[in-house]
């Protein structure tokens, strides 16, 4: 039986979370940045994903892959964010036309522009595999798809990226 008090457990859990946070945060922000193309948005997504992990840290830390949990949460949050942006874009048509947040990142860089041309699913898959270095099955767990589907997404994404990046240099 665990003889520690709940306070001791809470403190231990907080220390454990802080270690997890410090290790994962920079790379998670990088992942979110490549998904969104915006640094502020990326930090916000990463922090929100980690807040959600912190809120149920007892459960998350007991999972096979707490890292997978935060990446999965970040992907889901990004999906919701894109949905909100679409709604906002529709509202902007009713009100005054103003550039949305997606087009705001248009002039960022070749690689971000090329990433923008991918579907959000392809983008997440290629960034998880190529940037984070996950294998297809790990990425599949995060995206709730099969490893084979991840491989196919990554393959298609790389074809598009190669074409786009080659165009930039033509």
């Amino acid at each position: 039986m665990d003889a520690r008090t709940s306070t001791e457990r809470g403190v231990g859990s907080a220390i454990e979370f802080e270690g997890f946070f410090r290790t994962q945060y920079p790379e998670l922000v990088g992942f979110c940045f490549l998904l969104t193309g915006q640094s502020a948005e990326a930090e916000d997504l990463a922090q929100e994903a980690l807040v959600r992990a912190f809120e149920k840290w007892d459960r998350v830390s007991a999972m096979e892959s707490p890292v997978g949990y935060v990446y999965r949460t970040a992907c889901n949050l990004n999906r919701h964010r894109l949905r909100r942006l679409r709604v906002r874009a529709r509202k902007a048509l009713w009100a005054s036309a103003r550039p949305d947040e997606i087009s705001a990142s248009e002039d960022r860089s070749e690689i971000l522009t090329a990433l923008r041309s991918l579907s959000s699913g392809q983008r997440a898959a290629v960034v998880l595999v190529e940037w984070i270095g996950m294998d297809a099955d790990e990425a599949g767990d995060i995206l709730s798809i099969k490893g084979a589907s991840v491989r196919s997404r990554v393959h298609r994404a790389k074809v598009v990226l190669r074409e786009r990046l080659a165009d930039e240099h033509d």
Binding site: G30, F33, E43, I111, L112, V126, E130, W131, G133
Partner: peptide, 16 residues
């Protein structure tokens, strides 16, 4: 590709 991602993250991503 990984190198380009890394360079882009290094250039644009901010970690408070």
């Amino acid at each position: 590709l990984r190198r380009r991602f890394q360079a882009e993250v290094h250039r644009g991503a901010r970690v408070s």
